[in-house]
Structure formats: C-alpha cells, structure tokens
Design a protein around this nucleic acid. Sequence first.
DNA 1: TAGTAAACCTGACGAATGTCATAATATTTA
DNA 2: TAAATATTATGACATTCGTCAGGTTTACTA
Lengths: 234, 234
Amino acid sequence: MFKQPECSSCGSRLSTCIIELEPGPLSELSQSKHSQLYSRNSYVFAEGQYPRGVYCIHRGHVKISKESPDGREHIVSFAGTGDIIGYSALLAAEKYGVSCIAVQDSSICLIPSEIFFRNIRDNPSMALNVMQRLSSEVRFSHQRMVELAHKSIRERVAEALLIIKEAFGVDHDGITLLSPLTREEIASIVGTAPESVIRTLSEFKSDRLIATNGRTIKLLNLKGLLHIANIRTP
Amino acid sequence: MFKQPECSSCGSRLSTCIIELEPGPLSELSQSKHSQLYSRNSYVFAEGQYPRGVYCIHRGHVKISKESPDGREHIVSFAGTGDIIGYSALLAAEKYGVSCIAVQDSSICLIPSEIFFRNIRDNPSMALNVMQRLSSEVRFSHQRMVELAHKSIRERVAEALLIIKEAFGVDHDGITLLSPLTREEIASIVGTAPESVIRTLSEFKSDRLIATNGRTIKLLNLKGLLHIANIRTP
DNA sequence: TAGTAAACCTGACGAATGTCATAATATTTA
DNA sequence: TAAATATTATGACATTCGTCAGGTTTACTA
C-alpha cells in the first residue's frame, strides 16, 4: 500500500467542511481515514451499495452519475480535488442513489461514517458547512432540472462545455479543455445520444465557436457559447 | 389579523425538524413566528428575493417552481401540511433560486432567520434533521434530473400523475386526485407543452388508465400507470 | 510500435414532440 | 345565476431528435 496522506498538511482539506476541525479531531480523522488510488473508469462507489463513510478527493476528478431506467448513464455532476462526496446517502441513511466513477487517475480518502457523524454532531460549524454544501447541491440540481426540461439539445451541449470548463479547467492557453471525457460522456451530461452531441459540436466548429482535435476541445468563443447556452445573467 | 397558531399544539410541527426542539426554544419560536393566509396562486416567496427565514406549512399546499430562460414555469416539487420550505437559499445565503406559490388556500408560518439559525446551532439533533431533509431533496432532484433527461413525454406524464397523487392524496373513493392543478401546471411538472399533456391524458383515457371530468382526474389503473412511468422497483 | 478496439463522424430516415389555429367546455367572478 | 374568462380538447404541420448503418480516425494495449 502507498503512503497515506496526512490531513493536517493536505491542501485539499481547506476547501472542504473538514477545515472546521480542531487539531485534535483532525488528527483522529487523519488516522482513521483510508486513502486509495482509483484509475480512470473505476468505481469509487456504486448505486445501490450502502455507504460506509464520505469520500474526500485528494487529487483527481470523478463523475457522479445515475443509471436511467433504460440502462443509459446520466451524469449528474462532477467533483474534483478538494471536494467531498457521498454526504447525501450517508445522511439520509439509504443506499447510494448515484455512482461515483473516477474519470482520471485519482487519489481519494474514505472518512468512516462514525468519524464523520461524530464530528458534525460535536462541531456546529462543520455541521453548518455541510448544510451549506447540501443547499448548494439542491440549488444546482434545481437549475439542471429546469435546463433538462426546457432547453434544446443545442443549448444543452453549449452548456455542457461550460460545465466541463468549470469542472476540469483549461490548459495554459486558457481555451483547451482539460477533460478526458468522451463524446458519449458529454451526451450523458446533456441527456441525449452521442450522435446528437457530435453533430452539434460539428455545428459549433463550423461557427468557429470551438475547435476539436480528437477528444480535445478548444473553446474559441466563450461569449458565443454562453449566449447559445442561454445562461441567465444574475 | 387572524389568530396565530400555537406551535406546541400544532400537529404539523411533528413531521418537521421542529420536533427536535425542547419546550423552551419551542415557546420562543412560537412567539417569534409570523403566520399568514395565502390564497391560490399567491406567492409565499419569489425567485430573486432574499430569504428572511424558513416557512412552515400549517395547512395547505404549495408548488416550488423555477422560471426557465424562455420564461416558462417549471415545477420542481410540491410541499404540503407539515413541510418546511426555503432551507436551501437561507443556508446557502443566497437569493431564492425558486419561487413558492400556494396552489390551495394555505396557512403558512414564517420562522425568522435568527431563530432558525440559533436552533440548528444549539441543537445537533435539529441540525441533523435538517441535513437529512436536504439530503432527501438532493436525492429526489437527482432522480428527477434523470427522468427529465431520458424519459419520454408519455412516461413523464404517467409519473406526474403519481407525483400528484403523492403530494395531494386522493378522495375517499381512493382514486380521485385531490389536486387543483391545471393541465398547464401538469405540463410544468413534465417539462412540456400543455397540448402534449392533454393529448397524453386522452391516450390514457382511451386505455382506461384514467378518467377525467374537467380538471379532476381519477386513477383507474395505478399498476398500469406505474408500468408506463417506468419506475424502478427498488 | 504495431495491431486492435474504441471512439469519432456523417448521412438517411422515421417517430416524437412543439407550435399554431380553432372549437368546445368548464370555471370563475360580477 | 349568467356572462366573461380561462381551460380543455383536437387537428394539421414543421421541426427536432433518436436510431441505424457505414466508414474513418483516434487511442489504448500488448
């Protein structure tokens, strides 16, 4: 087994609810966690399993997805370095309603249930932090629901590119998406067939909104994509 | 102003996170809340406003909805007697991302922010209760996202009828939906045009799955609707 | 690095669904 | 209760989108 990271010196901790912990509980958490490497496409947890804790992404990216009744995948959201995932099933005390799959080689720590529950019970700040994150997820989900219900494929593909940019970031050039996602995975964000995604991306290419080279995509005209995606300016 | 209800003797309280309060804090909450009557189609709160607390439904039903970029309404969920609404915006400290509109004449209490925050901070059980509810909302939203992304209109209309049954219940006969929703509102659940809903309901009527009389709908064949809705049996 | 599998891309076609128009009916309100 | 209004209902048509088939390119793996 490889070297377990130390939470106190982990930068990823600072963007999570674990930032609220005092040195004592933090050290306890650090010792009781289990760190593991996941290669692309390997499951961190799967729909239907019972949660055994929450997962903290030390390095890498995962997709949170759910199987549709006809067996196709739908990607609900992404998470990356410094995100904690798997709250909801644990807190609701139910089986996972979603799967978590690494989209890049990732290093992820499992924080056991007891430790997590003890800390949110004893530390009101951490509890509030968790509530804020859950609230943000609720708000994001509502947003996505409306988009899936009312936007065209073209709008949703443009939006998917923006979601990918947000989740994976861009290269030094500022326009090349750092995403390993296939067209089929993009289709799973949009909620459509891969062919429809490919066709739409071809349109975007003709309109000089993007450039593609194999799997990699460059966003040439961000403003244009925002406009097509029909994003509400708040 | 009409008589303010007393929380300690309010049955609705028992199904909410307020059940966790001790008599002292409960009495304080009861005195600081504001109760109000809302008639059908009046706003409890609107997208874009800043939250001033959470709302506890003493009696009645509301829809939680969100405007799509093209100005159409999408109904995200329903809440009724004994539900608390408006957590997420308050906790995330943002403007409401959704509107709450009474679909029946309703009596609803506003619990001011300070009181709510003080109680979730001082009472870990109540905090945990709130987290559980938020978690359930997240799970429900994920479910809806997948359905909106991958199910046909026919499937979603069948499902909408089941959602309405769940939210509003049925008459003594066990099959007549106690819902005041128009076809347009059902369309706002499904994410489609009213005409498509009406057409689909006509099909269901031909297939003896439902019967309609003006706005009222009877569910004649629940099993058939479940089958069409393509519900995963857990 | 070569071979193989997977992913990308385009065309053709049909089914599903959105839109507009218009009539009939139910619901609301004066 | 009657008139006014909103809602329900159906038809016709255009458009979007899903599906199948095929050829090409890319990416993985031995």
